[in-house]
Design a protein around this nucleic acid. Structure first.
Lengths: 189, 189
DNA sequence: TCGAATATGTACTGATCTGTACACTAAAGG
DNA sequence: CCTTTAGTGTACAGATCAGTACATATTCGA
């Protein structure tokens, strides 16, 4: 049995969508670049939208797993892990082919809030927010939701700024800001 | 002489691009929605790209003027104006038809860093950063560039979060975070 | 060896895309 | 009055879009 052509298709489609955008990438080019025949593509995914959704699901899984693991590897306490997130981001920004956040892009290209792609992109951000909230709770902060949202703002801002203004600066400044916020947040740590 | 059909075209194109996206909006639909004939459109703008650039120029002018004025109207000192920016943002988020930042979207749809549209979008962010740096300098902070970048991260993060997760929360949390950052930034105010 | 499943290649449909061609109209200004 | 300028309307070219049709090939378990 082949190692699931379908998974490989999604993996490559993800790569191409991330690099070139959703609307700007036609199915014909996906056929050429993935090497999967058009017939097979449409057997696995009834529409382009379905393929995009599958790619976003994979991206969500990959990105969150990567980020959580990075934070765990870089720090032991929940508070230190929140701070370490910005080191992980800095490493990501420095990678070849960094192009910003795929979910922000997806939300930008499919603006309708009822559109499945928009819904799924928003869900990704919500999951990250929940994760940060959990860490803030574990760390014993008095207002974990508030702190989590503030750190999320720094993270999203850093991604946008790194993608638009260059990777030097945003991640470092985000971390410095996060340290100040953590140091002065109310709570009985 | 008519009140400049060209300006009206750019104004309406801006509105439509903001609402529906760049790649998703065809010239044929612009013809219908603006009421300007296709011949005229292509007489004023040689390509769709030129029209997008003109729309972005107008947006940049409008947005920066609006933001600067809002901050001046809401506060007197440079430091207070930096904080007031987040109140202005909150008001923007609450407006009907709020769809996030047009320049982030433009940068998402035209990812190539050498592309004129990407260049212009980045320039908008750079101008905002410079403005914040100026305010931080006037306010007498010791590291104005650093503080300005941190506030920019909060601003961009708030816009993204408001567009994706809902308008309640991001602006308020961004302001709270900004207050903490301002209160604990080094400098002889 | 048969049959089901999964793949391929390619030509096609009908829509939509950006941009052009061409003939026409309205009006202002010297 | 006549030229210039700015506009209209529409048909079209050539490319590309998402998605389908159809005939063929490969693989693998029963």
């Amino acid at each position: 049995m082949r190692p699931n052509k379908r998974d490989e298709l999604v993996r490559k489609a993800l790569e191409i969508f991330y690099r070139d955008g959703f609307n700007a990438t036609g199915m014909d080019r996906l056929v050429v670049e993935t090497g999967v025949s058009k017939t097979s593509m449409y057997k696995h995914f009834r529409t382009k939208e379905d393929l995009i959704l599958a790619a976003l699901r994979l991206r969500d899984e990959n990105f969150r797993n990567w980020l959580f693991r990075e934070c765990e590897n870089r720090a032991d306490t929940p508070e230190a892990q929140m701070l370490a997130m910005f080191d992980a981001l800095a490493a990501w920004f420095a990678q070849d082919g960094f192009r910003g956040c795929m979910f922000i892009k997806a939300s930008a290209e499919f603006q309708d809030k009822a559109h499945p792609i928009n819904v799924q992109a928003a869900e990704h951000k919500r999951l990250l927010l929940n994760w940060l909230t959990g860490l803030a709770q574990q760390a014993g902060f008095a207002a974990p939701e508030s702190l989590a949202m503030q750190l999320l703002l720094l993270k999203e801002g850093a991604i946008v700024a790194a993608a638009m203004l260059g990777i030097d600066g945003p991640a470092q400044e985000a971390k410095q800001a996060a340290r100040v916020l953590l140091d002065h947040a109310p709570g009985s740590r």
